[in-house]
Amino acid sequence: MTAEPLLQVEDLRVHFPVTEGVVFKRHVGSVKAVDGVSFDLYPGETLGLVGESGCGKSTTALALLRMLEPTSGRILFDGRDITSLSQREMRPLRREIQMVYQDPFGSLNPRMKVRDIVGEPLVVHGLAKDRKAYRMRVAELIERVGLLPDMAERYPHEFSGGQRQRIGIARALALEPKLIICDEAVSALDVSIQAQIVNLFKDLQDELGIAYLFIAHDLSVVRHISDRVAVMYLGRIVEVAAHDQLFSNPRHPYTEALLEAVPVPDPVLESQRDHQLLRGEVPSVTEPPSGCRFHPRCPKVLERCSNDLPLLEGEPGGRAVACHLHDHLHDGVTDRLQP
């Protein structure tokens, strides 16, 4: 890719302190929710971020928006380091990065009319010149996401889950952002409605050139919508690749196991598949395993996996994998230690 990345994340870490005692809160350890995440996101592209619950997907999203303070690492948006901007300095940037949430019930204020929910960002950022312009812009947004103009006067409880998600999308579009972070934005919806919203996301991207960071646990949806996909496990990215490469030729054993676990809606195909099940469950983030975090569950574990943390190696914007099985791919570097 030739263009400059819109978003660059370098070695992002978000650690939460674990304390003991009430008065003198002794620091007894930390939960490393995000522990060394790096990726690039290019303008107009969709990067899927997948992983099981607790792997740090949502924490990463919140840190990007500076709704959680990163412990270390760098976040560059449009080439500008935003890691240590004050909340005041962040404000204009929030026009550029918007978010669509998972829960279409919890993320809309039940006491506000749809018009005011969708229009609130315009008011906050002082973009509504007068009442007429404001109304016209809101009407345009409502129509753009496939709702009817008279719905502006109604309250959220009058809408179904899919329609509420459309309202949330209209609100995110109001400021014409360059990047929308979708945190499980279609996970709560039934399949027939989910397909409507997925198509809407794609259409908006084609028309407006918005980039998406699409966070989800459903691999089928992610495969469908993403240009590239990053797989997370226990706070780290284990593999990044173009969507067709990742799904047809996964390199990390965890990616392989994830793909194996997802059933395909076709009984003939399913009966031919060989179901290699992963043993065990995701370990706790408070005490992650040493070395490669996946090694206790990995079917292809090597001796060094329990000591050496494999780093994500590969070319920027291309395919990369963090696994000792693929060390030979990278200039014969054999032993890497945790930085």
Binding site: V191, S192, R223, H224, H243, V262, V264, D266
Partner: peptide, 13 residues
Amino acid sequence: SVPRLDDSAQTRL
């Protein structure tokens, strides 16, 4: 309407 894991073409849902 179900996106399929074995669909490489990203055909529109």
